[in-house]
Design a protein around this nucleic acid. Structure first.
Length: 596
DNA sequence: GCCGTCACG
DNA sequence: ACGTACGTGACGGCA
């Protein structure tokens, strides 16, 4: 027995002149191939849902187009399909569609095929993974730009339904076509497992995190803004007095005039537009004049106020009372996530003000925030990938790695390592991972390049495995023009064969750094998926809120704290089986500062 | 819309 | 001689 959808002819066949009457029979025939789209980026609401059965057979359900259709009835008919775990979902940027549907109470389930993420895995250095761009690259298909369809209208809902149908159906059809095309390419590049076991399940986790958001103490944040205002006022007058004139401190060009013309300080570095007034320059100049120090103070307070304390309260969602970031899964060339609008991966942590600002991120009543971070993750991955004996041994025996490096590069016994030596060794350990030169190390440690070269030489004498690994990685990269992570994620390095030495050396550093940074990114993504599944399996209601590259932040009901702490540590430490143990440091408190 | 600067891992 | 440590995003100034 056929049942007509109650919104009847509001469903429109893009090919046909006659509006098609979609019935439940057709909807269930769409089983494998669904693309929820027809969204309106301007108002962040669902305007319609485009469904593609196969090429040439697409439907558009105009949920919010002006007309007599009944939203609730339309959605209640699509809901069983969208929520059916046996029905796979195909789309371009599915997280976006999933989040819109959740606002309507629909929770998408089932296997995902996201063509945007597929495009990213195939080429993470591609700057643009929009459907428009991906369709041109992989299908040589020029898609009509959304802006053109929209014209001067305020919303997609005002576009005539026939035109909207053409547009939305084209989106759905392109995703369908791209799915087959990109899936073949993923398989032949060995990216299938990363796609299905890491990135696709991660979409659900990221959607949950974005939807959850994080609570902040609004009143306290506003207090901090006022406090910063008073500090800035004082600093401004001090700066003007020392400069002998008033000017815009935020303008590097005006500041340059004051420092280098009026005060006659000697410029040290040039930028494209003038003399540099960056931190390291002002740091150096502060030895000969009081002003640069005050400029630095002014800048740091100004940064904190404009980027954090002034901005965050305005971003509280009135519906949820919380701040919701976006986690971008297709941005970085190494496989890391990024966070934007607002970026919650660069919240201050250092110094007194770092603590003050982290204190404004709080747990809801009855909950605590839990922070879990991987200890020295990149060095552990380096140890595993290089099989360097001394590094592996140090981690296996829980030796303080920076202290050991200090004893190696300074040639003193472990118990004779001073805090200063350990601090220098820490810089060396980080520098190695980035491919730092003797010059770079000398700058970072304020020593001569000669001394720095000795440290580096000492390091490699004790770590032949690391040296071998770096040389081998660069050599392989030169042959393949790409590098891979432990899990097989790819980063192309087109410039590794450049005839320009500077360009080529840059690529050499990327060749060494990317497998390490990228493997760390793979690892924490695996952990996120595992934790999400384990929490569900154990019926725990902790929510993952943020990922900050080697740290995960959760909101956990106090009553479930002990069980959840255990679960998080276990899942994170077991996410990958390396030749060195993984160590997780975990803490909790009423705010992010306490949890750390 | 780019540049310089600076917050984070 | 080359240029000099990897990966991000947001802000204000300026054209």
């Amino acid at each position: 027995m056929k049942q007509c959808l109650l919104f009847g002819d509001s469903a429109t066949d893009p090919q046909g002149e006659v509006p098609a009457v979609i019935d439940t029979g057709i909807v269930s025939e769409l089983s494998f191939d669904i693309e929820a789209t027809g969204r309106d980026p301007l108002s962040d609401t669902i305007v319609g849902i485009a469904l593609c059965k196969e090429k040439g057979k697409s439907y558009y359900v105009p949920v919010r187009h002006n007309g007599p259709c009944n939203i609730q009835e339309a959605l209640s008919i699509l809901m069983p399909v969208l929520e059916d775990p046996a029905v796979a979902k195909i789309g371009h940027n599915l997280k976006y569609d999933m989040l819109l549907l959740r606002q309507e109470g629909i929770h998408v389930r089932g296997r995902l095929y996201d063509t945007m993420v597929a495009s990213y895995l195939l080429n993470p250095i591609k700057p643009d993974h929009s459907l428009q761009d991906v369709a041109v690259e992989h299908l040589a298909h020029k898609k009509r730009p959304f802006a053109e369809v929209l014209g001067k209208r305020a919303s997609f809902a005002e576009v005539p339904v026939e035109e909207a149908t053409q547009y939305a159906a084209e989106d759905a059809e392109l995703a369908m076509e791209l799915k087959d095309m990109l899936f073949d390419k993923l398989q032949s590049s060995g990216l299938e497992r990363i796609y299905f076991e890491i990135e696709m399940p991660l979409i659900y986790v990221l959607a949950d995190m974005e939807e959850a958001g994080i609570k902040i103490n609004k009143e306290r944040t506003e207090e901090l803004s006022k406090e910063l205002d008073r500090e800035l006022e004082e600093l401004r007058s001090r700066v003007y007095r020392l400069a002998g004139s008033t000017f815009n401190i935020n303008s590097p060009s005006q500041l340059g005039k004051v420092l280098f013309d009026d005060l006659g300080l000697k410029p040290m570095k040039k930028t494209k537009t003038g003399f540099s007034t960056s931190m390291d320059v002002l740091e150096e100049l502060s030895k000969s004049h009081e002003l640069p120090r005050e400029i630095l103070n002014y800048r740091s307070f100004y940064k904190l106020k404009t980027t954090y304390t002034d901005t965050l309260p305005k971003l509280i969602n009135p519906r949820t009372g919380r701040i919701h970031t976006s986690f971008n899964q297709t941005v970085t060339s190494t496989g890391r996530l990024s966070s934007s609008d607002p970026n919650l991966q660069n919240i201050p942590i250092r110094g007194e003000w770092g603590t003050k600002i982290r204190e404004i991120f709080i747990a809801d009543e009855g909950n605590v925030l839990v922070s879990a971070d991987y200890s020295q993750i990149e060095l552990r991955i380096l140890a595993h990938m290089s099989e360097d004996e001394s590094l592996v041994d140090a981690f296996k025996n829980s030796i303080d790695i920076h202290a050991r490096t200090a004893s190696e590069i300074f040639g003193v016994p472990l118990d004779a390592v001073t805090p200063d030596m350990r601090r220098a060794a820490k810089v060396v350990n980080f520098g190695i991972v980035y491919g730092m030169s003797a010059y770079g190390l000398s700058e970072a440690l304020s020593i001569t390049p000669k001394e720095a070269a000795v440290y580096i030489e000492n390091y490699f004498n004790k770590h032949a495995g690391v040296k071998r690994f770096m040389e081998h990685t660069i050599q392989t990269a030169r042959q393949d023009a790409f590098v891979t992570t432990l899990l097989g994620r790819i980063r192309p390095l087109p410039e590794i064969t450049s005839t320009n030495a500077a360009v080529r050396q840059q690529a050499d550093r990327l060749a060494v750094n990317t497998p390490i940074q990228g493997t760390a990114a793979d690892l924490i993504k695996i952990a996120m998926v595992r934790i999400s599944k384990a929490l569900q399996a154990r019926n725990l209601s902790a929510r993952m809120l943020l990922q900050i590259h080697d740290e995960l932040l959760f909101e956990v009901p106090e009553k479930e704290l002990n069980e959840t702490l255990e679960l998080i540590s276990v899942e994170m430490e077991a996410a990958l089986d390396l030749s060195v143990p993984l160590k997780v440091e975990i803490g909790w408190g009423k705010n992010w500062a306490e949890a750390h």
